[in-house]
Measured scan of single mutants.
Amino acid sequence: KLPPGWEKRMFRSNGTVYYFNHITNASQFERPSG
């Protein structure tokens, strides 16, 4: 389970998975720990 605010997303163009935090508007490719 991801830390609060984080969700898994995917770029439609190339299928790359990334993680987005809707609380802080942060995004990263590494899976957030917590």
Rank of each mutant, 00 (worst) to 15 (best):
W6E: 02
I23P: 02
S13D: 13
K8L: 10
H22R: 11
E7M: 05
H22D: 07
K8V: 15
T16I: 15
N14R: 06
S13W: 08
F11E: 15
K1E: 15
L2N: 01
Y18F: 07
G34W: 15
W6I: 00
F29Y: 10
R31I: 13
S33Y: 13
R12W: 09
G15A: 09
Y18E: 07
R31S: 04
I23W: 04
F29L: 12
P3K: 01
E30K: 03
P4H: 08
G5D: 05
F11K: 13
S33L: 13
H22I: 15
N21G: 03
A26N: 09
R9I: 07
S13N: 10
G5Y: 05
S27M: 15
M10L: 11
R9W: 00
S13Y: 06
S13G: 11
F11D: 15
N21I: 09
L2A: 01
T24Y: 05
H22N: 13
F29R: 12
P32Y: 03
A26P: 01
R9T: 03
N25H: 15
Q28H: 04
N14M: 03
A26V: 14
P4A: 09
T16R: 12
R31A: 08
S13I: 09
P32K: 01
M10I: 15
V17T: 08
S27D: 04
Y18P: 03
E7L: 07
G15K: 05
L2Y: 01
R9A: 04
P3Q: 02
Y19N: 00
N14E: 08
M10N: 09
F29P: 06
W6K: 02
A26Q: 15
M10K: 10
G15F: 11
R31D: 11
Q28I: 06
V17R: 03
M10F: 13
N14S: 14
S13P: 12
S13V: 10
W6N: 01
G5P: 07
N25R: 11
N21T: 02
E30P: 06
P32N: 02
V17F: 13
G15V: 00
I23M: 09
V17P: 08
F11N: 15
T24D: 07
R31K: 10
P4Q: 06
E30I: 05
G34V: 11
Q28M: 03
S27P: 00
S33N: 11
N25S: 09
T16F: 07
Y19S: 00
P3R: 01
G5M: 02
F20G: 05
A26E: 15
K1P: 14
F20W: 10
M10Y: 14
Q28V: 03
N25D: 07
G5W: 05
F29W: 10
P4N: 07
N21D: 07
L2F: 03
Y18A: 01
Y19E: 03
S13F: 09
K1I: 12
P32Q: 03
F11A: 10
K1Q: 12
Y19R: 00
S27R: 14
N14Y: 05
V17A: 08
E30V: 06
E7W: 05
G15E: 10
K8E: 11
S33H: 10
G34R: 10
A26K: 14
G5L: 02
Y18V: 04
K8H: 05
S13M: 04
Q28R: 02
A26Y: 04
S27H: 13
L2R: 04
R12Y: 11
F29S: 08
I23K: 07
K1L: 13
T16S: 14
G34A: 12
E7R: 06
